[in-house]
Design a protein around this nucleic acid. Structure first.
Length: 626
DNA sequence: CTGTTCAAG
DNA sequence: CTTTCTTGAACAG
């Protein structure tokens, strides 16, 4: 047959992926808004539960997904903020994501939920690997740009930044990994980049994070969890087993509960547990603590007799399950995750809002709630799917969708629009007279075409939602619940789906992104004025390889044209050769040649003094095409 | 295409 | 497998 596990289980460790997890994100958003909250026990509430809390609150006994009543009892002085409106979290998440994405050459930055980001930094690490000067590892320079060799930071390349797993691996073991492949040094470079990004995120955005560094999304994410707040962890090589011992991937993964592996959800984990335990199931503690934990670890599954793709196919395959579920799960168990870090998505594929209810059984209530939900949905559609269109050059332009009010020089325009409107409810299981409890907590939905009226940007959301509820949502609701009464809903969800791009989006969306990038880059570059380049200091601000006014000249040029900073940019500055040298002497950037090793080199092409760590980059700069 | 299920935080 | 509020992928029909 076709299933050959060996083929799917080939490791590929040529990538380098960093996983970010903002520390207790919802709480951090409130803390940033009001820094007084920083050192107080702070929790965020949605309905009846604490969805997250800061570390001070955790110290005092609070935890995630705790009942509010219980939390109040445990910690009466805790400050509890209402977090049902996700707007502030969504905005903060987007800002952080944009900030991090800006660093990624590959553009591969993927958001997972509001508080996690994967970045594929393979190209950045590979480039910096080439740039390394093996004679001056302690005073290395990490390049954050291919075009602008002044952009980057100093670091000590003789040690990994942050924590590692396994903690007590001997130097010889690590050195052997280094000797056999470039994996160790690439992880090392990744760890320093991760540390830099982590510090930048905290300094510029005000969010601390926890990161993991490895060669796949799977391992990066899992290894990050090892040192929780404000930490970073790198999984050390070897990543393959040998005569000397087991792969660190296997050693690390084997200790995890099978259900903790990202990609193996509750249902899949239960099926696997049932197989390994040989008895049907074991309902994990539905209540609080103290339940009998039936722990099935990855190792138990991996080493279970005859376990493999075929057994998993029998167990997990069949109707309704993904086609390649067995191979995927078996790969994950063996530490292999080939999934790529996704590229940024222009606009979301769907926008949905929902609310849950203690009791919702009357049509009048439903109508009122639908009105509220549709208002939020329409508002979010405008925020996320439309943008302000400046049109100084409107003369002679044809624009069918244009709704500019007279006298306005700018108006809103749709970048994308939803084709479908979906209403979802979750009926509370009907209580049967004979006491049998129906246990279906499932959602049901009906959908229809999105009425075009919602695209009219000049009519008010109020008016639109009123019409939408009356003409569309009420009929949709009756389609879901034909009975006039007898139902009781615990939830309603409204979703704008099948969102597709308009013609305006590709042109304008790109323009918006670029102008945003310019602003961010300018902001950051200002902070990166040439300062004391102390290479010993690990977290020193990025340092120019050029003397002061040369560097500033370069920065100015880059500010004007950051995305096309090539040789020309520097040739302008280069023409001030003499002034450059003078300033260099006078400003006394580097105290003496002794203190900074590597000032001895003067470029034969431009006569510039270049420190060791920058020689390769400087030569490459001369090699740049015109 | 519509509606459901699973997984993620 | 539930609390909350979302988003995305994939499947059946």
């Amino acid at each position: 047959m076709a299933a050959f596990p060996t083929k799917a289980l080939k490791r590929d460790d040529t990538r380098l992926i960093i996983h970010f997890d903002y520390d207790c994100f919802y709480a951090a958003v409130f803390e940033k808004e009001d820094p007084k909250l920083r050192y107080l026990p702070l929790a965020v509430q949605q309905k009846q539960i604490i969805v997250t809390c800061n570390y001070e609150a955790r110290r005092q006994g609070l935890h995630k997904l705790q009942r509010v009543t219980e939390a109040r009892k445990t910690c009466p002085n805790a400050i509890i903020m209402l977090g049902e409106d996700l707007t502030r979290f969504r905005n903060a998440s987007k800002e952080n994501y944009d900030f991090l994405k800006r660093f990624a050459w590959s553009g591969r930055a993927e958001r997972l939920g509001f508080d996690e980001v994967f970045i594929d930094v393979t190209d950045m690490v590979d480039y910096n690997l080439e740039m390394l000067n093996s004679h001056t590892l302690q005073s290395s320079f990490f390049h954050l740009s291919r075009n602008d060799p002044t952009l980057g930071f100093a670091f000590d390349c003789s040690n990994i930044a942050g924590d590692v797993v396994p903690e007590n691996q001997t130097v010889t073991d690590t050195a052997m990994g280094q000797a056999t492949s470039s994996l160790y040094i690439r992880l090392l470079l990744g760890s320093h980049l991760a540390q830099h990004l982590r510090y930048q995120l905290e300094e510029h955005q005000g969010y601390s994070s926890t990161v993991g560094i490895s060669t796949s999304k799977l391992i990066s994410k899992l290894v990050g969890n090892v040192n929780k707040p404000k930490g970073q962890t790198t999984l050390l090589p070897p990543y393959t087993s040998s005569d000397h011992g087991e792969s660190n991937i296997t050693l690390f993964l084997d200790e995890h509960d099978i259900g903790k592996i990202p990609g193996i959800g509750f249902k899949t984990a239960q099926k696997i547990r049932g197989h390994v335990l040989a008895h049907p199931a074991a309902i994990d503690h539905g209540l609080v603590y103290g339940g009998t934990e039936e722990n099935v670890k990855v190792r138990d599954v991996r080493l279970f007799p005859s376990m493999g793709v075929e057994v998993l196919e029998k167990l997990l395959g069949g109707s309704g399950s993904p086609k390649d579920i067995a191979i995927r799960v078996w790969s994950l168990i063996n530490g292999i995750d080939t999934s790529e870090v996704g590229r940024a998505r222009e606009v979301p594929q769907q926008i949905s809002i929902e609310d849950s209810y203690i009791r919702l059984d009357a049509m009048a209530e439903v109508e009122r709630e639908l009105k509220l939900l549709s208002r939020s949905l329409l508002s979010r559609m405008r925020i996320d799917l439309s943008c302000v269109e400046e049109h100084e050059d409107m003369l002679g332009e044809r624009r069918g969708t244009e709704r500019a009010t007279n006298g306005n020089r700018s108006s809103r325009q749709w970048l994308a629009y939803p084709k479908t409107l979906r209403l979802t409810t979750r009926p509370r299981p009907a209580r049967n007279p004979d006491g049998t409890r129906s246990r279906t907590f499932n959602r049901i939905s009906r959908s229809c075409d999105m009425p075009p009226l919602v695209l009219n940007l000049s009519s008010s959301i109020e008016d639109q939602s009123e019409v939408l509820v009356r003409e569309t949502l009420i009929p949709l609701f009756h389609k879901l619940h034909p009975e006039k009464s007898g139902w009781d809903l615990s939830l309603m969800n409204l979703c704008a789906a099948s969102i597709s791009l308009t013609a305006a989006s590709s042109k304008d969306g790109a323009g918006r992104d670029i102008s945003k990038m310019l602003k961010l880059q300018q902001r950051v570059l200002k902070d990166w004025k040439v300062e004391e380049p102390n290479a010993e200091e690990l977290d020193a601000p990025p340092v120019s390889i050029y003397p002061a006014n040369f560097g500033e000249g370069a920065v100015e040029a880059v500010e004007n044209k950051p995305l096309v900073a090539t040789k020309d940019t520097f040739l302008v500055a280069d023409s001030q050769d003499e002034a450059t040298s003078e300033t260099y002497e006078n400003d006394n950037i580097w105290e003496s040649d002794d203190e900074v090793p590597g000032l001895g080199y003067t470029c034969t092409k431009c006569g510039l003094a270049v420190p060791d760590f920058a020689i390769t980059a400087h030569e490459r700069f001369h090699d740049l095409p015109d």
